[in-house]
């Protein structure tokens, strides 16, 4: 009995030993927090307030990058890297891609469809903030931080892998089904079926090629004639008329008037 008590005591003392340094955050982590937390908050606020959707996306990238650093600080280097690669790398690029496709000037309408919706949203937001803040403040007043030192003794990634492929292996396998379904779903949603009727036949194509508007042969060159030898002189067609197509668009006809020919200086 006494040995058990002593053991419990020792465990407790050890836990307290581990907990004491982890409970208070100081040094570099504190500095990093107070630098990155305003960036994350500012990015989030900027994202909601920015009129341009591209700016919103870039603000969100700021927030996500700082969150990635937070994960690294919080003893989750693997998650931090995944955050930066998957979120700010892949997902935000996907967002920007769709924004460019949809048109980046698809700005918000100012008109309220539901009356008083913005006011209600603001009230709801303030209420949610107050509720969550009091909840967090009350629940974590005297939290004892254990720290991940013992759980990740042989590195964060091996520990994560050991857990992922033993206890959570079923969820991990189900994830593959989810991802395949998502990929298939995206393909089905993004696929546009073109009917045969909309496609041009070869006959139509060849007619199009030699129609009146698009003469297939090279354009006649501008002429050199008895009266002029300038590239601005249009070529003569077999029927004697001139063709404007022969004159380069760059060459514009200049009429010499008194103002141009006057001696300068």
């Amino acid at each position: 009995m006494s040995t058990a008590l002593a053991f419990a005591d020792a465990v407790h003392a050890h836990a307290a030993d581990l907990a004491a340094p982890a409970n208070e955050v100081k040094g570099g982590e504190k500095v990093a927090f107070w630098i990155l937390a305003p960036i994350a908050l500012g990015g989030a606020i900027g994202m909601v307030l920015a009129r341009n959707a591209i700016h919103s996306a870039l603000f969100l990238v700021c927030t996500m990058l700082s969150l990635g650093v937070f994960y690294v600080i919080n003893a989750g280097p693997f998650l931090g890297m995944v955050q930066i690669i998957v979120y700010t790398g892949a997902i935000m690029i996907l967002f920007l891609f769709v924004l460019m496709l949809v048109g980046r000037d698809s700005s918000d309408s100012i008109v309220e469809q539901l009356r008083g919706q913005r006011l209600a949203a603001a009230l709801l937001g303030i209420g949610l903030a107050a509720m969550v803040a009091t909840g967090v403040a009350r629940a974590f007043d005297d939290t004892r931080v254990v720290g991940l030192g013992r759980a990740t003794q042989d590195g964060n990634v091996p520990a994560l892998a050991a857990r992922l492929f033993t206890r959570y292996v079923f969820a991990f396998e189900v994830t593959s089904a989810l991802l395949i379904t998502a990929a298939l779903g995206a393909m089905v949603l993004a696929f546009v079926e073109r009917s045969k009727k909309d496609q041009m036949t070869q006959r139509q194509r060849s007619r199009e090629r030699v129609s009146a508007d698009s003469y297939p042969a090279p354009k006649p060159g501008p002429g050199v004639y008895a009266t002029s030898d300038s590239v601005a002189t249009p070529a003569l067609l077999p029927d004697g008329t001139t063709t404007d197509k022969s004159v380069s668009k760059v060459v514009q006809t200049h009429e010499l008037d008194a103002a141009t020919t006057k001696a300068k200086g």
């Binding site: 927090f33 937390a37 994350a40 989030a44 909601v48 918000d108 919706q117 937001g125 974590f140 939290t143």
Partner: peptide, 24 residues
Amino acid sequence: MTPTYYLVLAAALFTIGAMGVLVR
């Protein structure tokens, strides 16, 4: 400061996100 500061930050971010969903 304690690690609970992260929770406060996360709560703020979540609230801002929820507001954005409602407003934008």
